[in-house]
Simulated scan of single mutants.
Amino acid sequence: MAGEIPPAQPPPAAPGPGRHPRPLLWQWRRNPLRRRTDRLQAWVAVGLLLAVLAAAPAAMFAVGDAAHRHYRGTAEHETETRDHRPAVLMYDAPRHPEPGSDEAKETRYAVKVRFTGPDGRARTGKTDVEPGLPADSTVLVWVDRAGRITEPPLTAEQIRSRAVGWAILAFLGVVLAGLAAHAVTGFVLRRRNLAGWDAAWAATAPRWSRLP
Rank of each mutant, 00 (worst) to 15 (best):
W43A: 14
V44F: 13
V44I: 15
V44N: 02
A45M: 07
A45T: 12
G47Y: 00
V52P: 00
V52Q: 00
L53E: 02
A54W: 06
A58D: 07
A59P: 00
M60F: 12
F61A: 07
F61K: 10
F61V: 13
V63Q: 06
G64D: 00
D65V: 12
A66T: 01
H70S: 11
Y71G: 11
Y71T: 11
Y71R: 11
R72D: 15
G73W: 03
G73V: 07
G73I: 05
H77M: 13
H77D: 14
T81L: 10
T81V: 13
H84R: 14
R85T: 14
A87D: 00
A87T: 07
L89H: 00
Y91W: 08
D92E: 10
A93Q: 01
R95A: 13
H96G: 06
P97L: 14
E98I: 07
G100D: 05
D102M: 04
E103M: 08
E103C: 04
E103V: 07
A104F: 02
A104I: 04
T107N: 10
Y109P: 11
V111F: 03
V113T: 01
V113Y: 04
G117M: 03
P118K: 04
P118S: 06
G120I: 05
G120M: 02
R121W: 08
R121Q: 13
G125H: 01
K126F: 10
K126V: 06
T127C: 08
T127R: 04
D128V: 09
D128W: 14
D128G: 11
V129L: 07
E130Q: 12
P131R: 09
G132C: 01
G132N: 00
L133P: 03
L133Q: 02
P134L: 05
P134I: 01
P134Y: 03
D136G: 09
D136V: 05
T138G: 03
T138S: 08
V141R: 01
V141N: 00
W142F: 14
W142K: 07
V143A: 02
V143Q: 08
R145C: 01
G147N: 01
R148V: 12
I149G: 05
T150V: 15
P153T: 08
L154T: 07
E157Q: 14
Q158R: 13
Q158P: 06
Q158V: 07
I159D: 00
